[in-house]
Nucleic acid binder design. Structure first.
Length: 186
DNA sequence: TGCCTGATGTTCT
DNA sequence: GAACATCAGGCAC
């Protein structure tokens, strides 16, 4: 976990691919694999931290390995993993995950099947039961834990431009696992 | 299959 | 008061 504080947002975005999240519910636990990420840091015009530290972006400037959840478009949550050194505003957006275990628990919270369950940032938050109450949560602890896995080799990682933003949209800071069907927008 | 649009809260100007 | 790191449903092709 501490390794995340030493990585840039881009390196951390690649490092987090293939890692797993373990979500504990009252009635069991679900495990998912991260298959798509996007890097954001304070030098990046598309990042929430670009305009400095505010009440909303406060956790982005906090210690790495915590969860930054924000609300957008009036009805959706998206989750980020805070990375980089403390007081530096960087985070990695989780865009898509692949269920490994407890998929039925996820579809209880999001009544969809197959890739539509978690192939988008707001979708996976709904499926994992993540909302703003989880903002600032430490990912070393239950009920949502991040489990690091060995870093993927470069050939398994595809680089692309980011999605759904208007500023700095050409930066190739989106990463996903090659040949994975859960990607939000290949 | 693919474009268009409505829903709707929070943040910042 | 506008912008927004979105999704789902409707309608046209």
């Amino acid at each position: 976990m501490e390794i995340l504080s030493r990585l840039s947002a881009v390196d951390a975005a690649k490092r987090l691919l293939g890692c797993e999240l373990i979500r504990t519910f009252g009635d069991g636990q679900a495990r998912v694999r991260i298959v798509e990420t996007e890097a954001y840091d304070q030098t990046d015009a598309a990042s929430h931290s670009y305009n400095g530290r505010t009440q909303r972006t406060d956790v982005m400037f906090g210690p790495a390995g915590h969860l930054y959840v924000y609300f957008t478009y009036g009805m959706h949550y998206c989750m980020n993993v805070v990375v980089g050194p403390e007081h530096y505003g960087a985070a990695v957006l989780i865009r898509a995950v692949e269920p490994i275990e407890g998929e039925e628990l996820l579809s209880e919270r999001r009544p969809k099947q197959g890739i539509d369950l978690t192939n988008g940032p707001a979708k996976l938050c709904q499926a994992l039961g993540v909302d703003k109450r989880m903002n600032g949560h430490d990912l070393a602890k239950s009920p949502l834990k991040l489990e690091l896995k060995p870093q993927l080799v470069d050939k398994d990682i595809t680089t692309a431009t980011r999605v759904g933003i208007s500023k700095a949209a050409d930066e190739p800071w989106r990463f996903y696992i090659t040949h994975n069907s859960y990607i939000s927008k290949p």
